[in-house]
Simulated assay, not measured.
Amino acid sequence: MRPTAWHATDDLDAFLVRAGDFLRSRPDLHTVPLTVTEVLRTRGPHAYGSGVPVLGLLEEGGSVRATYFRTPPHRLFLTPLTAERADSLAAHLQSLGQPVPGVSADARTAAAFAEAWRLRTGASPVPYRRQRLYRLGTLTAPRPLPEGRARIAGHGDRDLLVRWFGEFGRAVGESGGTPPESWADARLAYGGVTLWESPDGTPLAMAGLTPPVAGQIRVAPVYTPVPLRGRGYAGAVTAEVSRLARERGADEVLLFTDLANPTSNGLYQRLGYRPVADFTVYDFQGQSSS
């Protein structure tokens, strides 16, 4: 067995000095840690909640091979791991007494860590969501486009963005994380939300972009209020933010979908997005506190 050394820290700068090159080596698979650490760097340690973020990395032979992070109250997020490394991470986190309410990672890594955590803590891994990561190839705008136009949201749209992000969070079962007001203010600061509006200026749908980092931008979230769905607004606004991401210099434009939603998966593929990897989110129930 190869020696492994996991290191935990709450020092973001130190983490990025050691793990930055590793994260930038695969901007697609590492899009979430790249984006989260950029937000923490620019907005401070409580950007995702009141808890102190925990970051960690695995060194083998003098090189970083994997990372993890958790921004309480959210789940643990992992870069790809072998089963052996997943078991060593479980031992590491257990030795630190770190709470792990759940895990999100590529499907193989998530399953390996969930099993390792179950064996060590008695936790029952409960699949919460299956996702697919897509990368944009050749952008194909939907035809015909719905009536209306796209525009970048401005500060006059803040109340709308706060309301819609709250509705989005409740719809996907993630309403206990980033405060909608904080999310809206951060996105407005860099033009990170595009609206599709009717000819009379009524907003109909929105799509967001994460900050650019390591040549990648992720489309998130895409939201249409329930009464307005099925009219092509989501496709139109997603195509527009995808074009905007490329215009802003992104080498890779990415997005996640819920695999339980065949409508959205079909839509994004028609727009030119191609699968990269599947991800699984687990919640851990019934684990011991030791």
Score class of each variant (00 low, 15 high):
residue 11 D to A: 13
residue 13 D to Y: 01
residue 15 F to A: 00
residue 17 V to W: 11
residue 22 F to G: 02
residue 23 L to P: 04
residue 28 D to H: 04
residue 29 L to G: 06
residue 30 H to A: 03
residue 36 V to Q: 02
residue 37 T to D: 02
residue 41 R to K: 13
residue 44 G to P: 12
residue 44 G to Q: 03
residue 45 P to H: 02
residue 46 H to W: 06
residue 49 G to H: 04
residue 51 G to S: 04
residue 51 G to K: 01
residue 53 P to L: 01
residue 57 L to I: 00
residue 58 L to W: 09
residue 60 E to H: 05
residue 62 G to P: 00
residue 66 A to F: 06
residue 66 A to R: 04
residue 67 T to A: 15
residue 67 T to I: 09
residue 70 R to S: 02
residue 78 L to R: 12
residue 79 T to S: 14
residue 80 P to N: 08
residue 81 L to E: 11
residue 87 D to N: 07
residue 98 Q to D: 01
residue 99 P to C: 04
residue 102 G to A: 08
residue 102 G to I: 03
residue 107 A to K: 13
residue 108 R to Y: 07
residue 110 A to T: 09
residue 110 A to C: 07
residue 110 A to P: 00
residue 111 A to I: 00
residue 112 A to H: 14
residue 113 F to A: 05
residue 114 A to R: 12
residue 115 E to C: 04
residue 118 R to M: 08
residue 120 R to K: 14
residue 121 T to I: 05
residue 122 G to I: 08
residue 122 G to Y: 10
residue 125 P to R: 05
residue 126 V to I: 12
residue 131 Q to L: 15
residue 133 L to W: 08
residue 135 R to G: 04
residue 137 G to H: 08
residue 138 T to K: 13
residue 140 T to D: 11
residue 140 T to A: 14
residue 140 T to Y: 02
residue 142 P to Q: 10
residue 149 R to T: 12
residue 151 R to D: 11
residue 154 G to S: 11
residue 155 H to R: 13
residue 160 L to E: 02
residue 164 W to C: 01
residue 164 W to S: 01
residue 165 F to S: 12
residue 167 E to P: 00
residue 176 G to A: 11
residue 179 P to L: 08
residue 183 W to A: 07
residue 186 A to I: 10
residue 188 L to S: 01
residue 189 A to T: 03
residue 195 L to N: 02
residue 205 A to R: 01
residue 207 A to L: 06
residue 208 G to E: 03
residue 210 T to M: 08
residue 214 A to Y: 06
residue 217 I to Q: 15
residue 217 I to H: 02
residue 223 Y to P: 00
residue 224 T to W: 11
residue 226 V to N: 03
residue 231 R to A: 10
residue 231 R to Q: 15
residue 233 Y to H: 15
residue 237 V to A: 09
residue 243 R to M: 00
residue 243 R to L: 02
residue 245 A to H: 05
residue 246 R to F: 06
residue 248 R to Y: 05
residue 251 D to K: 13
residue 252 E to S: 14
residue 253 V to N: 02
residue 253 V to A: 07
residue 263 T to D: 07
residue 264 S to F: 08
residue 265 N to P: 01
residue 266 G to D: 14
residue 272 G to L: 06
residue 275 P to Y: 12
residue 276 V to G: 01
residue 278 D to C: 07
residue 280 T to S: 12
residue 280 T to W: 10
residue 283 D to V: 09
residue 284 F to Y: 14
residue 284 F to M: 03
residue 286 G to N: 05
residue 288 S to Y: 00
